[in-house]
Design a protein around this nucleic acid. Sequence first.
DNA 1: CAACCTGTTCGCCA
DNA 2: ATGGCGAACAGGTT
Length: 268
Amino acid sequence: MPELAEVEYNRKQWDPGRGQTVLAAEPRHGKRVFRETDAALLARELEGKTLLGSEASGKQMLFRFSGGCWLGASLGMTGGLRVEAADFKAGPHDHLVLRQRRQSLVFADPRQFGRLRLDQGAERPAWWRSLAPPVLSREFSAAAVAAYFARRAGAPVKAVLLMQERFPGVGNWMADEILWRGRVFPKTLCGALTTAETRAIWRQTRWVSRTALATIGRDYRDPPASWLFPHRWAGGGKCPRDGAVLSREEVGGRATCWCPECQPPAKA
DNA sequence: CAACCTGTTCGCCA
DNA sequence: ATGGCGAACAGGTT
């Protein structure tokens, strides 16, 4: 379930490998996850290198190796990182296995919407440096959000919250959670949002991100029942605020859930 | 068997 | 050039 907090959780799964050498790097069946990256070259370059550390930014991850090697990873819809035994045998969806003396670091992704890439250099790769400022940074200001909504005036706010160039890390369930907390109807066009609604979305984007990182990002614990999150899946879910039956519909091309009582359409 | 899915990217069109 | 939208990608799950 890779959105902001799940990405952070996955990033930490490789922490046991920090400070240890990659004895062998095995790219496997997956072709699509490597995109324009040469998988064989990636494997050659990583062999003998030491995993020094990692960081996450939005839905992207970057693993730093000795010798100026950087392994970039994103998880798409179904990707995941995990640790297995040193002699673990890879399955059909395990696309990269990094062998270390004490364990294997595994990247898996059945649908292969995720991605792996390799960069070399003393500095972080250019694509990483051009990622949007995190929503918990000072650059993610209410004014920046308002300006972005002005530029996307004709699109429904639900669709715009999914745009990583302004809301890095926000995915489908986070977008619904933010709109529910901000009491904004998901189909509202960005150009029709009031100043108060824009500000509420800005504040809730930060709150949901921070709180998700402290729960899901820490130990994959589900958010509490007071969130929309646990109620939005099954048909007939009820709003944890007022008990109204939740609405479900496709908005901006994605399944969207909202409470018709606390998030009504604006009156004409 | 059919429908559904936590994400991006591309091509088409206005 | 910019913005909005639908399709495509690939496989598992319900």
